[in-house]
């Protein structure tokens, strides 16, 4: 059987909220190392990779690997029933048809029990090459969300270009064009707002803003986001889960998006 308790149900709620509009059904693979989900959107343009290590759980028991086929919008509906400071316990039998979800308030005076029906999902998985990226930009997740939102006003494709000086987001559409440049900041009052760029050579790629917009739904998870790019490969937009700022969290939520290319 599988049984795991997270002290903060809100963390799981934010994770599922962040992916449920991009991916409807997904298999959560549970093993002794933790919980993992890899799923693509219906057009196979983007991919979500969620890793929750056992470290982030208060209690984690997994006797045998289990695949939990989950309808994510329905899971999100149940997670919305948790209180702000509730813990959450997930339980499943080896060949069970349901996932039990139990919320407990801090003082344990309120206990809510739910069951979510599991599904058989025929999910296609892809092997993501373990590669070093040419460019890694770390910035405020709220700032990234704002830029993506602002770019969407003007068009549907955003160019992201990075040099040592800064990272430039550009868009053009029927009503005109725009761009926003963030300079690398050495000293800022608020550490969370710093822009740091590690790069080998300048890179510029084009991406569909619709998908970048989906990814920024993960902003409540972490004040920082890491954007990784290399020429002619999918971009990675990654958030730590259950960690602080730039430090390695006990988990991660990464989004991959295939670039747009000139025809």
């Amino acid at each position: 059987m599988f049984e795991a308790t997270l002290q903060k149900a809100s963390t799981l709620k934010k994770v599922i909220e962040a992916i449920k509009d991009l991916v409807t059904d997904g298999n959560i693979e549970v093993s002794e190392t933790g919980m993992n989900l890899q799923a693509m959107d219906s057009s196979h343009v983007s991919l979500v990779s969620l890793v929750l290590h056992t470290d982030m759980f208060e209690h984690f028991r997994c006797d045998r690997n289990v695949t939990l086929g989950i309808n994510l919008p329905n899971f999100a509906k149940i997670l919305k029933c948790s209180g702000n400071d509730d813990s959450v316990t997930l339980k499943a039998q080896d060949d069970g048809e349901n996932l039990a979800i139990v919320f407990e308030s801090e003082g344990q005076e309120r206990v809510s029990e739910f069951e979510l029906k599991l599904m058989d999902i025929d999910a296609e998985s892809l092997g993501i090459p373990d590669q070093d990226y040419n460019t890694n930009v770390k910035m405020s997740s709220a700032e990234f969300q704002r830029i993506v939102r602002d770019m969407t006003v003007l068009g549907d494709t955003c160019s992201i270009g990075c040099t040592k000086e800064g990272v430039k987001f550009s868009v053009s559409g029927d009503l005109g064009q725009g761009n926003i440049t963030l300079r690398q900041t050495n000293s800022v009052d608020k550490e969370e707002e710093a822009v740091t760029i590690e790069m080998d050579e300048p890179v510029e790629l084009n991406f569909a803003l619709r998908y970048l917009g989906f990814f920024t739904k993960a902003s409540p998870l972490c004040p920082r986001v890491t954007i990784s790019m290399s020429p002619d490969v999918p971009i990675v937009v990654a958030y730590n889960v259950g960690g602080e700022k730039d430090t390695e969290g006990a988990g991660s939520l990464s989004f991959y998006l295939a670039p747009k290319i000139d025809e």
């Binding site: 693509m40 057009s43 196979h44 343009v45 983007s46 991919l47 296609e124 998985s125 892809l126 092997g127 993501i128 090459p129 494709t157 084009n206 569909a208 490969v233 999918p234 991959y256 295939a258 670039p259 747009k260 290319i261 000139d262 025809e263």
Partner: peptide, 14 residues
């Protein structure tokens, strides 16, 4: 115009 690529062109099926 720009063409959207898919992930299958970059990531392999295991």
């Amino acid at each position: 115009s720009m063409k959207q690529t898919t992930l299958a062109s970059f990531f392999k099926k295991p």
